[in-house]
Amino acid sequence: MSQSHIIPLTEGLPGQTIRIHHLTLEGTMRRRLLDLGFVPGSDVTVLQRSPLGDPVAFRVIHTTIALRKEESSQIYGELIGSEKNETTT
């Protein structure tokens, strides 16, 4: 895969699935995200924005985790697909 397809999670739209490539976060937050399943190679589906636009809920290994854009903008991955049209925006 070429680097040009790599986007931060913040750019994913509801319904889209992104395969994580790398995280640019460090320290505790990086470890926490890894523990929750935001590991390179795993697939993350963008589910839903909160009513005020941020945070955003993601599905990762069968669980739903909400992240603020400060964190999700530092998780990068490749867009690998989109579920049938179910955007809510």
Binding site: T28, M29, R32, L33, L36, P55, A57, T63, T64, I65, A66, L67, R68, E70, E71
Partner: peptide, 11 residues
């Protein structure tokens, strides 16, 4: 600054 944040939304 607001610190990092994760929130699980359980089923």
């Amino acid at each position: 600054v607001p610190t990092h944040y994760t929130l699980e939304l359980p089923p």
